[in-house]
Design a binder for these strands. Structure first.
Lengths: 380, 380
DNA sequence: CTATCGACTGAATCTGGAT
DNA sequence: TATCCAGATTCAGTCGATA
């Protein structure tokens, strides 16, 4: 058993919310054998940063399914995916969600993935348990299996739910990292990713080891968006360990629960081979991630904006003067770049970085341009 | 009140399932005043082909929200979207779903649209009531409102559930029309459509009449995919009548329920102005809609494949002869293009159109190529 | 007449730390 | 718990005015 210091410095996690210097033993980098509810009972309360769950889908497939060319579709018919009634599936779902909620930190988060067969039940139950849905994410499959019989729309997506511990609970979202990943546009709730096949798909003797292996790109985005380096991620339905593999690569700690020995063996072998990204790659992500909190005063201190500089709004309705401490003065009013802009406009809020402009070499630029220059210099 | 003959000839509806020559009075082309559950009680059982419902989402919004430029976001704050608890919302949902199920024909279908705030509750409840989810459809908005605070993923989609009356119930799906609409690819479960704005958005004195008016393109696809001309469509949350307008355009009958007089008035005015597509346009759709069950015999009859032509599989394991009635002969075996292909391969099924090939001008082509030529000629 | 620019808007569960 | 205040934050599209 590894020993984990659960208290970490995290941007949005105030010290009062985190357990104080509580050393707890967590089975990091291990796959717990047996039923996931039993396994999770071994985990201390409020010790996990993220739970990612890919529970059985409760697929109610009828007879065999064949493609138009006669070949057989290898459907999910494993015993672990059989539930007699909605009631049985609901009970099962409630049980594991209750344990997941207990082991999560107050600012931890839950992800669940499912299809229309089960996700509506899972979603309603987790809301009943107090989880607060932050987004539902659509994984739009770029290469889904067609509907061979032409009886319905091609089932081309699956759904993920991202939840905090409750309505008022804190949570972590790496907004910048996601925006960067999406070519400087906000990341949307629909993600286009291919299904897991090719070299990534684990096979044994020509057959896929697990019927519903998830693509690593999916876990990559989940972990990058809602965890920090060093966070502990638990997957109650570990399967062949996609969560563990990506966690290891991204420098996150992981714990799995899995009943099937075949899956556990395959997962351990797979994760063993996985190499963590080196520090520099992770740091680059970190830089993209953390908010560039620059005080305007820092620009003045460092000579990017000289005291006495005249700042004005786009329409030059107001012209203010920069003071040595980084505050602005307009007639008798003074304040921060944000506060003064807000006052003058009578607006509920104002982003001073884009509101105020200055002249530089005959060019008019928002002061945000100076901030960018400063950031570039500081990051080197 | 109009009088409707509920028995119609419909491809997949066997006579035994439809009520026998039962004449019932339905308020076609009318908006029923008042609560939708009360209103639906006036509708006879098993008389409606399709229910499309856009219920309140129970958004549970907090305080005000401003855009980064300081402008105010006009949120949905109407009373009709306010529920005290999940329990209250669930009760409301169960009530209208029970009535919807009663008035639907045995082979009728239900569509519901919602967001993550409500759709998981709606989905679980309709499953509990025996509705059978056929697909969940993701409406991916091409122009959603951004997440102004950078706190979550852009909420860029809404979800629709398409359900039959039960696991074994029949339903209608215009596979061909959807495939045609999607450039000859199977229509997928994710639809990219813009939100409703511009000239389509109903306004009164510069303000939107309804806060959540749905785009007509969405209803167009719903009605075209799962109803026939002349079907009766009921919308329990009629609002400003998008369902009615599109139904009228597509030659479907419609019934609405709506409590708010302002919405009712706007809807009636709007639908009044709507013009039905003329018969020829609808017939063209009809042609696209019904399965292109081109009998292989028709190709033979019309000279696209001559009797006596030798057909063979790709690997030329078998070579069969086309007979005058469109059947094939291989040694002592005969059968349809599909049946014989299946027999020879010992496969559970076979698509004869792609299995069998013929030579034409030195080129080897699947007989599906001949079918395409035939379809092109017939459609003119 | 066209091109450009600015204002406006859409089902949104939309901050956080210090006092 | 309530209040205050510093700081951070938007995409696609329509429409009308201006050049």
């Amino acid at each position: 058993m590894a020993v984990l210091e659960t208290t970490k410095t995290r941007a949005k996690a105030p010290a009062k919310r985190a357990p104080k210097q509580l050393s707890v033993e967590l089975p990091l980098g291990q796959i717990l054998d047996g039923d996931c509810v039993e396994a999770m009972r071994q985990i201390p309360s409020a010790s996990i940063d993220l739970v990612f769950a890919d529970p059985p889908y409760n697929l109610q497939l009828g007879g065999d399914l064949n493609r138009p060319d006669g070949s057989h579709v290898d459907a999910v018919t494993d015993d672990w995916d059989k539930f007699d009634t909605f009631k049985a599936y609901d009970d099962f779902t409630r049980d594991w969600l209750i344990e997941a909620k207990r082991i999560l930190k107050p600012d931890g988060a839950l992800w669940v993935i499912g299809s229309y067969h089960n996700i509506y039940r899972v979603g309603a139950i987790l809301q009943d348990l107090g989880f607060w849905i932050l987004n539902d994410i659509v994984w739009r499959k770029s290469n889904p299996m067609p509907n061979f019989r032409g009886t319905r729309f091609t089932n081309a997506h699956e759904t993920l739910l991202w939840c905090s511990q409750g309505e008022k609970a804190k949570y972590h979202f790496n907004y910048r990292a996601m925006k960067t990943l999406n070519d400087e546009l906000q990341m949307r709730s629909d993600w286009v990713l291919p299904i897991c096949n090719g070299a990534e798909r684990l096979k044994e003797g020509g057959h896929k080891v697990h019927p519903t292996q998830k693509p690593e790109s999916l876990l990559y985005r989940v972990l990058l968006s809602t965890t920090e380096k060093g966070d502990v991620v638990l997957d109650p339905f570990f399967g062949t360990g996609t969560t563990g593999a990506v966690a290891k690569r991204l420098g996150r700690e992981w714990i799995g629960c899995e009943r099937e020995g075949v899956y556990r063996d395959a997962a351990l072998k797979r994760i063993e081979k996985e190499l963590p990204l080196d520090e520099s790659a992770l740091t680059t992500m970190q830089a993209g991630r953390s908010a560039p909190k620059v005080a305007f005063g820092a620009l003045v201190e460092n000579g990017y904006i000289a005291p006495g500089t005249r700042l004005f709004d786009k329409k030059r309705r107001w012209t203010a003067t920069v003071r040595a401490d980084g505050s602005l003065a307009y007639e008798k009013q003074t304040g921060s770049i944000h506060g003064l802009g807000k006052e003058l406009q009578g607006a509920p809020s104002c982003n001073g970085w884009t509101f105020w402009h200055y002249e530089n070499g005959g060019e008019v630029k928002p002061i945000d341009a100076a901030r960018q220059l400063y950031l570039l210099a500081v990051e080197d």
